[in-house]
Design a protein around this nucleic acid. Structure first.
Length: 310
DNA sequence: CGAATTTGACCCGCGC
DNA sequence: GCGCGGGTCAAATTCG
């Protein structure tokens, strides 16, 4: 989950009411004159605190519910996207015909396996059946129209380019990358500009990462050529409207099983973790920080005006 | 100077 | 068998 989780595109409006209790927004630091609660008697204080605690608890519960709801929506959306992408890649394979479907199957360690493949086919009829490549995902990214030559796509993983080719059906070259984050990682990536719309990059991922996603510090949001909007492509097979492209190609065993995950989601620890993650994601979001800053400064100004009137 | 990228050569499967 | 095209290799070059 990243900062995009806070996106209103999920159809959820997180009304972070910063004016819940204006009294508590007032700065209580010793250096400031504070006029509000000091008039309360010592007897009234515990009751008021309990009341306040209850209010916060209720609020916390509401927020947790909203968060859970958002997560459910996100997961549902993610599943839809994956189904959609899988269906499209299947259609593509059938369209491209037998040759391509088979040709892509053995792509991986082709050079290494050449001999073994040959020897296995020497027997004549006992050719090794070529399995259908299932872990192929395709992503389209809109790039900056001012830079139509670069094929750099940042998705958090570390890629090493090992080839470039001009293909027959597309005048723009296709770049071949291998995942170099882990030496043994078999994942490959092909990047090519769309023939119809050169501002769109067609990124094909093949295989499963046998390692976890690189640490947060190494991750860069997928802004092709830095600071460029990625987006949907009308009429394309699959779309990437998320600022980060992290195809779900990590081996299932690394992902953990779904049942365990759902149990974890139920646990209070996870709920707290989720809330923390959300908070962290929100605080990383520039526009959110700006909104908070504006709201806080608004409150401070409001308080100053009140103080002046007093 | 080491790592990453470029690029021409090569390999292999497929269609004719 | 030959040519075409996609994919890969590896030496040369560039970059930090």
């Amino acid at each position: 989950m990243d900062s995009t989780m806070a996106d209103t595109s999920l159809g959820i409006n997180l009304n972070l009411n910063l004016n819940l209790n204006p009294l508590h927004n007032i700065d209580k630091t010793p250096g400031h004159d504070y006029v509000g609660e000091s008039k309360l008697s010592v007897k009234e204080e515990p009751g008021r605190l309990i009341e306040e605690l209850n209010r916060i608890s209720t609020e916390n519960k509401k927020l947790t519910d909203m968060l859970t709801f958002m997560c459910e929506n996100y997961n549902a959306l993610h599943n839809h996207l994956m189904d959609f992408m899988q269906k499209n890649s299947e259609n593509e394979v059938s369209k491209l015909g037998k040759r391509k479907a088979e040709g892509e199957n053995y792509g991986n360690d082709r050079g290494i396996n050449r001999d073994t493949e040959k020897s296995s086919s020497d027997g004549g009829s006992c050719k090794r059946p070529k399995e259908i490549r299932t872990n192929v995902s395709r992503v389209y990214l809109r790039t900056n129209p001012s830079d139509m030559t670069s094929l750099v796509v940042r998705d958090g993983y570390q890629w090493r380019k090992y080839g470039q080719k001009v293909t027959r059906d597309n005048p723009s070259p296709r770049a071949y990358y291998r995942c170099s984050f882990a030496p043994s990682c078999p994942v490959k990536r092909k990047v090519q500009r769309c023939a119809e719309d050169p501002s769109v990059l067609d990124v094909t991922y093949e295989g499963e990462h046998n390692h976890l996603h690189p640490p947060e510090a190494d991750q860069v949001s997928l802004d092709v050529n830095q600071g460029v909007n990625s987006g949907s492509v009308p009429g394309s097979n699959s779309i990437s409207s998320s600022p980060k492209v992290t195809p779900d190609l990590i081996k299932p065993e690394l992902r953990g099983n779904a049942k365990k995950a759902s149990q974890e989601v139920e646990s209070p620890d996870f709920q707290q973790f989720l809330a923390e993650q959300m908070a962290s994601a929100l605080t990383r979001n520039r526009s959110f920080r700006a909104a908070v800053a504006a709201a806080i400064s608004g409150r401070i100004l409001e308080r100053d005006e009140l103080m002046e009137r007093w």
